[in-house]
Nucleic acid binder design. Structure first.
Lengths: 353, 353
DNA sequence: TGAAAATCCGTGTGCGGGCACGGTAAAAAG
DNA sequence: CTTTTTACCGTGCCCGCACACGGATTTTCA
């Protein structure tokens, strides 16, 4: 057991390439001051020998501390973004071993100003990398420009803006999730006469609607497979419980012909509460995201199915990818990482996460 | 902005304790040869200063090579275990950076002897840790005893044996997956008159049936929700294509009242092939595992749904957990890691993996 | 042609800790 | 009182890499 697989070191590379380890180091880190000839030679040897820098030695020698900043909406426990935050925390614990710090800059997802402030504070920290949930298009572009000009890599979470020079994107395929949602909603024993789409009423016109693509996918499925089915939009204000009941009473509550209800954001539990209180059973309700309250409604039968995504894992993957990129300089494996869409019902939700 | 990792080092401890770093090192690793007095002094200082050994330096200096052995069934590309192997490969690439080697010992999943040989060869390698798919109960217990007495930690993959002293388990909740399967099968527009359960005929009696628990879950669901529905077992030999057609022709093929078919292992594509060739449409077919051929059948509509698990991720998690345990000495986070059950249909399978 | 500037490159030190080696002092044996 | 044993302990080299520094070579330009 003597001849162990000798890991190839930077010295081996240097010897094989006929240069010194200093030169190899310069090539590895793109530090310049290397002639094209020896640069190519070194790269070839690295490839041939399969040299992989020893992470430990590398990190030990360069006592640098790196910071990844995350620009993520503030939220209360149990709300959508709390899962993402959880994933970030988890990742932070892991990468701290590699001298990488993760800090979060929160913002109010309904306020452009607070988003802008978060961006500014992150830029002023001069981080090594940035993860951002690009809730506001124009401000995100401003941020992207600022980061790009400083050479700071950034990734998008949950949604993306195509023409910003992002390093990677982690999120769900929105259009397809709407399509899938329609399939699940209509997969029951009866063909729906009418479907209620419950939406959040948006007074401020400046706000973008992150679920628009999802709704489009839903509508396309319906138009294609159930052109006869009526679609009725019901607008509610999530902050006003009384009005929610009122609005639902006037629409879903009066339905005689089988109640089909969907929501495209994570708030289906609002509808579930209503249906539960009113004692409406045998409804077909489909929503998104495995929030605690949604899963509870799933288990008691009020909600038929949820389409979920592991936003925590997604965030963890993003942080890991950024860490790898910062530490090893590797290009990210995939630019667009579409996370899988999980179908949850009462029988498999217990093992979800 | 060159923030240093301000950390107390072994030298700081040595100075503060009035000894040399060699002594501190001896204390840390319980290597003996230290007087009680200085031992206590060092321990106190370590506590006061909050000294934590630098992982990088430690691993860099101690060039120990660790090996994780995996005892996993051999298989051809596209078969069930190939995904697990893929996950192991992936993990191997990652942990190789930490000086951890991963080697696989394959065996024929239908042969106790080959399993025993794999176990023996692994034990003789004296690995740092072991992952095993415990396909044979008695032999696995023998392995467990042998490893335990050598102080070698081991984990179970895919299925587990409760009273072996395993460090962790990664797998699917089998009973529940059968329950879920029944729910999906019967969730359509018609109540099934009869359900065909296609099974692999096992001539050798010594073989354990890994899907027994799954079948039990299925049967319980059916008995509870559809007591009128007939269940007919159809036994096939996967190696004999002609006989498969024959058997199916005599059963499923003759059904007039809506064809409901399930299989509890990963071979549903065998049934799909038959149905496709025969031109039987509008069947309700549910199977397990996202093998390439199964997913193809899902997309062309022959199979209605698959219940899948990310066995690759599962394997990757297992290797990572073992690596963490070996390197950091941390106790594993969770002993029983039940992986989520994924419901796949034609609309979300594209984003699966 | 020679000097200055621009390029390129090798050497050496140190990161924090593991561990072999050898040394010193106290205890035991002769 | 020597000699040997035992119990402790400090020194120094090494792990693989990052990076500063200065030396060497080539290019530029007067």
């Amino acid at each position: 057991m003597k001849a162990e697989i000798s890991k190839v070191t930077i010295n081996d590379v240097a010897k094989a390439a006929g240069v010194s380890k200093g030169t190899v180091d310069r090539v590895i880190h793109n530090r310049g001051e290397v002639s094209r000839k020896s640069r190519e030679k070194v790269l070839r040897v690295i490839d041939e020998l399969g040299f992989k820098p020893n992470l430990y030695a590398s990190l030990l020698a360069s006592q640098k501390e790196r910071t990844i900043c995350c620009i993520i909406p503030e939220c209360r426990p149990g709300e959508f973004w709390s899962m993402t935050r959880k994933g970030i925390q988890e990742a932070a614990a892991i990468v701290s071993r590699y001298g990488v710090k993760v800090v979060c800059a929160g913002f109010d997802q309904y306020s452009v100003d607070s988003f802008r402030m978060a961006c500014d504070s992150v830029v002023s920290m001069n981080p090594s990398g940035v993860l951002v949930a690009p809730m506001f298009r124009d401000e995100t572009m401003r941020l992207a420009d600022s980061l790009s000009s400083s050479g700071i890599p950034f990734m998008f979470l949950d949604s993306k803006i195509d023409d910003a020079g992002y390093l990677a994107y982690f999120g769900m395929p929105m259009y397809e999730s709407g399509y899938l949602c329609a399939d699940i909603l209509t997969g029951g024993r009866n063909i729906p006469h009418k479907v209620y789409v419950v939406r959040i009423s948006r007074d401020k016109t400046g706000l973008s609607d992150p679920t628009a693509a999802r709704r489009a996918g839903f509508m396309d499925f319906m138009a294609r497979h159930y052109p006869e089915t009526l679609i009725e939009n019901v607008f509610i204000d999530p902050k006003d419980a009384a009005s929610i009941y009122e609005r639902l009473d006037a629409t879903v509550g009066r339905e005689k012909d089988g109640r089909f209800v969907v929501m495209f954001n994570s708030r289906i539990h609002l509808v579930a509460d209503y249906l539960s209180v009113k004692g409406f059973h045998d409804c077909r309700v489909v929503g998104f995201d495995a929030l605690e309250r949604n899963v509870a409604a799933l288990k008691d039968g009020t909600v038929y199915a949820l389409i979920a995504q592991h936003t925590d894992r997604q965030a963890l993957d993003a942080v890991n990818a950024m860490t790898d990129h910062l530490l090893l300089g590797t290009p990210v494996a995939k630019r667009d990482n579409f996370i899988q869409m999980d179908i949850l019902n009462r029988y498999n939700c217990d093992y979800y996460l």
